[in-house]
């Protein structure tokens, strides 16, 4: 639609030659170090400011690992991770802490990412307090209002909420810090379609209103088509396709992208689908 007309934005994130490997504990010898499995094999990509970039791929493609490097929960073995002109790939935890306010994350499983022992308002307020951006109950209520949850949720515990409500709390926690970047890692994969739709339209509205840069990790191309401006297709730790969503969906370059698109079961009768 308008994708082609959008002038190129400066990149908020710029990644060059990103390599990352994990030790393969299943094949660890009796003595010595375990062999390493390469998960990301030299990725180079840009995330333009103010846009939503979808990162898609099958399990084992390295999409979640890439996401965790972006918010620096993981450090790269090699390569540059430049955020806003600064290489954050090798920074230690103390140097990262002031930057983390700008690098927020919404997790896949809101049950395990919200501390079961804390009330909702405290979960939202705590990071605000740490960064001296408020952190009172009133501030938490404001954030709750932005994600469409009434005041009465403030004093509940996470296990008293439904999946969709929990994910809203996760979004409220992330936006409360007014970050520049949000990583959303498979945030709707555990939800019913109806709650999915609600959470996704909420995320889209908030991202556009706040001018956020978002990396949206998903295995679901349908969702990416409607939510994202750009898309990156990963396969076994390599980028096989990328570009504005319209281009990639209508003219996929890689067979992987074509296979992924062809395997989506659309809610319509199509007798030739299996062929």
């Amino acid at each position: 639609m308008t994708d082609v007309m959008t002038p190129p934005q400066p990149a908020l994130f710029s990644i060059k030659g990103l390599h990352l490997s994990f030790p393969d504990r299943a094949h660890r010898p009796l003595f010595g170090a375990a062999p390493r499995i390469e998960v990301l094999k030299g990725l180079t990509l840009d995330l333009p400011e103010g846009r939503i970039t979808g990162i898609v791929g099958e399990s084992g493609s390295g999409k979640s690992t890439l996401g965790r490097v972006l918010v620096r929960l993981l450090a790269p073995d090699a390569g540059q991770v430049t955020f806003d002109g600064k290489d954050i790939g090798a920074l230690d935890e103390d140097a990262l802490r002031p930057l983390r306010r700008d690098l927020q994350m919404i997790f896949q499983d809101p049950m395990s990412s919200l501390n079961p022992r804390h009330k909702v308002w405290r979960i939202i307020a705590q990071p605000m307090k740490r960064y001296r951006r408020g952190g009172t109950r009133a501030d938490a209520l404001k954030a709750l209002e932005k994600v469409g949850l009434p005041e009465s949720f403030a004093d509940r515990y996470p296990h008293e909420l439904s999946g969709g409500q929990r994910q809203r709390v996760g979004i409220a926690r992330a936006i409360a810090l007014e970050p520049r970047f949000i990583l959303a890692d498979e945030i709707v994969s555990g939800l019913d379609v109806s709650s999915q739709a609600q959470v996704l339209s909420l995320l889209k509205t908030l991202a556009k209103d706040m001018g956020l840069t978002v990396a949206f990790i998903s295995h679901d191309l349908s969702v990416i088509r409607h939510l994202c401006d750009d898309v990156i297709v990963l396969n076994h730790g390599e980028i096989v396709d990328s570009g504005p969503v319209q281009t990639v969906f209508e003219h996929p370059k890689s067979d992987i992208t074509k296979a992924l698109l062809g395997a989506i079961p659309r809610p319509e009768i199509d007798d030739s689908w299996f062929e």
Binding site: A197, Q198, L200, R225, H226, F249, L261, I264
Partner: peptide, 16 residues
């Protein structure tokens, strides 16, 4: 059916 996402761009998305 309307809430089910599809890669078809002409269909209005995110209808709970």
């Amino acid at each position: 059916i309307a809430a089910t996402p599809t890669p078809n761009a002409s269909i209005e998305p995110f209808r709970p």
